[in-house]
Simulated assay, not measured.
Amino acid sequence: MNVITIDSFAFRIPKIPARYRPNCSKEWGLFVTGDTKKLNCSQAEKAGLTRGNFVEMALCWVTQKTLTFEPNYINEEFTEIWGIPVAGEMKTQFNEKASELSTFLVHRQSKDKMAGLIEVFSREAFNQWVAEGMKGDLNEYAIAKAAETYFSKIFRFEMIQTEGSYGIYFFVQTTCREPNPENKLEMAALKTAKQIYESQNEGLAFCTDPRLEENHANSMASLAMPEEAAQLSSAKNTKALKPKV
């Protein structure tokens, strides 16, 4: 376990990632932890496995993964979010002067909502790049600007109820706000998030879950297999068609 202390606040970085899961089914609409497969919402809550319907975080790392969780999700795209909770039950389980690097996945509609917010940041970065004379590489500029945004905003992930062709369900809505300068926890969490981001880029792997990395690698390999098989088949057919000399 690693601990980062900033401005009299302590932030825990566990060796085993503190992973949560947004349960979007109609009976739930909550973030959960642990194994809740055989439990209903009330039972999970009594067992201490629920973490409320929202979390506010200082973002540390956001990445894309292709993952498989049989039988419902096969080679499906997810967004992996890492952050320091500053509000919500993920935070209140800790002392008021402490929090913990936490992570969860979003997919489908929740993933699209997150992507929509990031696209707004990307558009703003593009406009700034043009206004500043289009100097340097746009992608590098956009990444730098996105990082500035991450470490200057508090992000809120909240379960929102909606209804579709399969009935009522929840999705995770992503919004952001300016930090409260009088909230010392928020300001310290933003500093910590930036430090974790820089450490991740340096290879310290604070925001890495080996189980998901393996899952992602296996999923990508399974996606590549049909193409490789087709290429192999094509090569064999080409060889068979060559005239014998």
Rank of each mutant, 00 (worst) to 15 (best):
L138Y: 15
L117G: 02
R108Q: 13
V120R: 10
Y150C: 02
N127D: 15
I118H: 06
E132I: 01
A131S: 14
E124S: 08
K91F: 15
D137F: 07
S99M: 10
S110I: 07
F104V: 02
S122P: 00
N95F: 14
I118T: 03
V106Y: 09
G136R: 07
K97W: 13
W129D: 01
E148A: 05
S122H: 11
K111T: 01
K135Q: 13
D137I: 04
Q109K: 12
Y141K: 02
T149M: 11
A146W: 12
E124M: 12
A144E: 11
M90D: 05
Y150A: 02
T103N: 14
Y150G: 00
F126Y: 15
R108C: 05
I143L: 14
K145L: 09
E100L: 04
E119H: 12
A144H: 10
A144D: 08
E96F: 14
A142H: 04
F126T: 03
A142S: 13
F94A: 01
L117Y: 14
E140T: 05
W129N: 01
K97R: 15
G133R: 06
F126R: 06
S99K: 08
V106L: 08
E148S: 05
V130H: 06
R108G: 01
N139M: 14
A131H: 10
E140R: 09
V120G: 03
T149D: 09
A146L: 11
N139C: 04
E100H: 03
E140W: 04
I143M: 13
M114N: 06
